[in-house]
Amino acid sequence: MSGRIEGKTALVTGGAGGIGWAICKRFSAEGANVICADITAPGDFPPKNVEHRSLDIADEDAVRSAFARLGAEWDSLDILVNAAGIEIEKTIEDTTLDEWNRSFAVNVTGTFLCSKFALPMLRKGNGSSIINFGSYDGFIADPGLAAYCATKGAVHALTRAMACDHGPEGIRVNAICPGYVDTPMLQSFFEGDGSGGGGKSLDDLQQAVRDVHPMRTYGTPDDVANLVLWLASDEARYASGQLWVLDGGLSAQVQQMKL
């Protein structure tokens, strides 16, 4: 039986990270040829038809060269996943201009550059799909994540703009907006006590956060990969310009008042 994206070509930025790697594996299992583009190498041995390439998405020359090379190897690109992102755990008062600029360079400019240089190949693709990484933090704020929240809001707006401009060329553009997903980035957030844990132990803090979710758990990278797969596949051929929140119901509710 063939996979749900059998024979499609895909490039996943941040592909070696927690969520990115789950996407690479899922795409491979469903029959795609995948470039895992990441500034660092994956920790695991890549599965079938997944190749790691080092790429700094904030570097225009590097992105241009990466797609020039890919264009010489593949006739077209069907799927671009802009999953690379960084998180500075600070309020604006504590955020330096360098940190602010670096956040935008990776999360927003990187998405812009990869999409821009991928477009000629995506136009030749069959049912092409760009999947950006927004966040539920682009709608509502987590404490102490000011620059991150701002970059994700920018990705949401960019997603809609790209969908309008390039839909008539046969390219769909969506953003997936994860909530709390069990990744090294989330662990770092907890350890930084950025959520205002009020002196709770790490375990107590994590349990308290789980309990606030209607699903009583965090998401896993595989949960996110499942939705990315749907958006990448032809099953989603009429879905474009939307922000797909996947957060275990967290943002469906008002803040939990202790009454």
Binding site: T159, R160, A163, C164, G167, R172, P214, M215, T217, G219, T220, D223, N226, L227, A236, Y238, A239, S240, G241, Q242, W244, V245, L246, D247, G248, G249, L250, S251, A252, Q253
Partner: peptide, 18 residues
């Protein structure tokens, strides 16, 4: 979709993005 709840999944060919 076991982590998806309380959300809205819009499929509109991009209409409401514009």
């Amino acid at each position: 979709s076991s982590f998806a709840t309380g959300q809205f999944f819009t499929v509109d060919g991009g209409l409401t993005a514009a």
